[in-house]
């Protein structure tokens, strides 16, 4: 328990150092766009692939579970849309990104730590936390909502495609369901969740990488630990955010 408290305290102290004014704005923006490419653009492919197929699976499973002939078919589209917007895209894609991007962040910062590159920054008089972590946080928080919008869109398209191929739902019914009872606030809820998860995805792995001690094996262990903790925090935050934003 004492160890958890110590790590939590150290994590918030780290954030205090991260959120300082960048020492050189031009270098900061350069780093920011590099992070957008490393953490955001490079993740679009896997997110698109997973979203399209999971969208298809959601439609097939929903259709197969709505066997009652009195249940209108358009509900398949409606249920799929709600599943994708409320849960699949913001939460599950964030957990997938925690694995992909989280391990990248921990291993890259951890390797910099064990090869003295972070010490080199400090000796030069650079706030290494601000220099390394702030661009990652901002890149994640600003870019991941776009990724989630892509995920929702492709999930819906995937579902539509699967429905047509399997013949479980007609195009008209599916599109009716997609448009029916649309609540724009659900998109807002989804994007707020994504922004919070993006912050978690950027900071927890950065913490594990920045304070790693030892060599290659420790960096590997830190990456695993970072992914586990990021996923746990996302799941717990998901519960509280849902209660706060959707609960009555």
């Amino acid at each position: 328990m004492q160890s958890y408290l110590k790590h939590t305290g150290k994590y918030f102290i780290m954030l205090g150092q991260v959120f300082k004014r960048p020492q050189k704005r031009s270098v900061f923006w350069q780093q920011f766009f590099k992070e957008v490419e490393d953490m955001g653009l490079s993740s679009i492919g896997i997110v698109a692939f997973i979203s399209f197929f999971v969208g298809g699976v959601v439609v097939i499973q929903t259709a197969l579970n709505l066997e009652n002939p009195l249940t209108p078919k358009y509900l398949i589209g409606f249920a799929s849309r709600e599943s994708l917007i409320l849960e699949f895209s913001p939460t599950l894609i964030s957990i997938i990104l925690a694995g992909k991007v989280g391990s990248f962040i921990t291993s890259s910062i951890g390797t910099m730590r064990v090869t003295e590159q972070i010490d080199a920054l400090e000796v030069m008089g650079i706030n290494s936390l601000n220099h390394l972590v702030l661009p990652k946080i901002l890149a994640a928080v600003f870019f991941y909502p776009f990724i989630i919008i892509i995920s929702i869109t492709l999930g819906i398209i995937g579902g539509w495609t699967a429905g047509l191929i399997t013949g479980l739902i007609t195009s008209t019914d599916y599109l009716d369901g997609i448009r029916s009872d649309f609540e724009p606030y659900h998109i807002t809820y989804s994007l707020i969740k994504t922004a919070v998860f993006a912050f978690v995805i950027a900071t927890i792995p950065a913490y594990h990488g920045f304070y790693v001690k030892g060599g290659a094996i420790e960096v590997g262990r830190a990456s695993t630990k970072a992914v586990v903790w990021t996923s746990i925090v996302i799941i717990v935050m998901n519960y509280f955010l849902t209660q706060m934003l959707l609960g009555k």
Partner: peptide, 21 residues
Amino acid sequence: EKRDLRKEIGMVFQGSALFDS
């Protein structure tokens, strides 16, 4: 002041500590 002082310091690390990316 410490940051300003560090601008006056050059350091060669044991493992060179070059930014590998």
